[in-house]
Simulated assay, not measured.
Amino acid sequence: MSFHQHSPAPSPDPAEGQAQLQYSESLTGNRGETPEEVLRHRKQDFRTLWRARRRELDPADRAEQSAVLTRTVLDWYLPRAHHRRAAVVMSYGSEPDTGPLRTALHEAGVEVLVPITEPERRMSWTAWHPGVEVARSPVAPIDEPVGERLGVDTFATVDLVLVPAQVVDTRGLRLGQGGGYYDRFLAGLEGLGRRENTGHDAGPAPSAVPLTVAMVFRHEFLTRGQVPSDEHDRPVDGVVTPDGFTWFGAGPS
């Protein structure tokens, strides 16, 4: 008869035990003590998931969808352009590629504005054209065009704002990168509309505030489920995917 001799179990490492507990809590949904903490964790979990899905998109599919998005925006916007001014995010990494769209708009005689990151997580805007001089942002690891900085008041004469998003739901609420830049900007547009409306019972002119549209890949428009949100999150007017535009609320006139 043989016997297997077992070594004594090692004493548990307190640090390792704490790390395992934290990991377990992250899986079981213990993601904060206050509603604000819980929401912050939910948003970050959502963001992590959709970032991963975007990175996993086949490069050929990403390029094809970006090209269709460009044609879709041009076909819808150019016949309806009033001021012939549009604000377009400068894409980075795995986002839908807006480079060809910006070039096509410029060649069609549309003034293209792009965002500039400012301190305190705010944005200004400046004109873009092919070959524009760029410089490193002092507040973000990105290169941005050099030029006159424009504030929210200039958007009284902008037709369309294409807003970045990780994912958008049917309420028009979007999940961005987490900096809050665009939610502050969208809130500013609401204020612009109120200023334009002052003293006029009929409300603001149709062009007082531009249409805001999130631009995402096909799978990033949630037709079921909702984006985690709170009262600080601002909806967009619509979403554009390679399948076309979807409008929320009244939509464009």
Score class of each variant (00 low, 15 high):
Thr48Leu: 05
Leu49His: 07
Trp50Thr: 03
Arg51Asn: 05
Ala52Met: 06
Ala52Glu: 10
Ala52Asp: 00
Arg53Gly: 02
Arg54Trp: 01
Arg55Ser: 07
Arg55Trp: 01
Arg55Gln: 07
Pro59Lys: 00
Ala60Leu: 06
Ser66Gln: 03
Ala67Ile: 03
Ala67Arg: 07
Leu69Trp: 01
Leu69Val: 00
Arg71Ile: 11
Val73Gln: 04
Leu74Gln: 02
Leu74Tyr: 00
Leu74Asn: 03
Asp75Ile: 04
Trp76Cys: 06
Leu78Pro: 02
Ala81Asn: 12
His82Gln: 11
His83Glu: 10
Arg85Phe: 05
Ala86His: 07
Ala87Arg: 08
Ala87Val: 07
Val88Pro: 03
Val89Leu: 02
Met90Lys: 08
Ser91Asp: 00
Tyr92Gly: 06
Ser94Glu: 12
Pro96Val: 00
Thr98Glu: 10
Thr98Gln: 00
Gly99His: 13
Leu101Pro: 06
Leu101Asp: 10
Arg102Leu: 11
Arg102Ser: 08
Thr103Ile: 12
Leu105His: 04
Leu105Phe: 07
Gly109Cys: 08
Gly109Arg: 05
Val112Lys: 07
Val112Glu: 11
Val114Gly: 00
Pro115Ala: 02
Ile116Arg: 13
Ile116Pro: 04
Thr117Lys: 05
Glu118Tyr: 05
Pro119Cys: 02
Arg121Asn: 15
Met123Glu: 06
Met123Val: 04
Ser124Lys: 11
Ser124Val: 08
Trp125Thr: 07
Trp125Tyr: 12
Trp125Arg: 07
Thr126Asp: 11
Ala127Met: 11
Trp128Glu: 03
His129Phe: 11
His129Val: 07
His129Glu: 13
His129Thr: 12
Pro130Leu: 01
Pro130Val: 03
Pro130Tyr: 06
Val132Asn: 08
Glu133Tyr: 05
Glu133His: 09
Val134Arg: 13
Ala135Asp: 10
Ala135Ser: 14
Ser137Ala: 09
Pro138His: 04
Ala140Asp: 13
Ala140Phe: 15
Pro141Gly: 04
Asp143Lys: 14
Asp143Arg: 14
Glu144Gln: 15
Glu148Pro: 15
Glu148Gly: 14
Glu148Leu: 12
Glu148Ile: 15
Asp153Met: 13
Phe155Pro: 12
Ala156Ser: 14
Thr157Asn: 15
Thr157Ile: 15
Val158Met: 15
Asp159Ala: 12
Leu160Glu: 08
Val161Phe: 09
